[in-house]
Amino acid sequence: MSDFQPKIVAFVCTWCTYAGADLAGTSRIKYEPNVKIIRFPCTGRIDYMFLIKAFANGADGVIVSGCHPNDCHYVSGNFHARRRWIVFRELVDFLGMDVNRLCFSWVSAAEGAQWAKIVNSFTEEIRQLGPYKAYMELVKKDKNESVF
């Protein structure tokens, strides 16, 4: 189990977490290579469908991250996102999805080290959980393998 390399995708906003990840880079902080970032203008843009589609395409874990409350570049996008996540998380938990495979965080443009920390700890958590077998079963049963 321990050499399992989880596939993790991170949906982040460009102003805070993406910039924070850039800072981790310029500071040459080392972290696990499993997390791959997709850049959005704002956490408000991150449709819950993207999270679902990530699992449908084989992700073992998903990170969603943006600006801290009150620091949104677009004033309130992260507040709307937070409501969406609260409801979404409760719902998928109720449906029997493993919410430990979802990681929500606030990482600012200044928190390069925090980004590295989240990537490392979440990668380790997912490594412990192993591949997301239950969802993979679901995908396997689906005739249409992918969405495009």
Binding site: F50, A54, G58, S146, V147, F148
Partner: peptide, 13 residues
């Protein structure tokens, strides 16, 4: 665009 990026990112991994 975002779905295409996401799908390719995971499938090519």
């Amino acid at each position: 665009q975002m779905t295409a990026e996401l799908t390719a990112l995971l499938l090519s991994d």
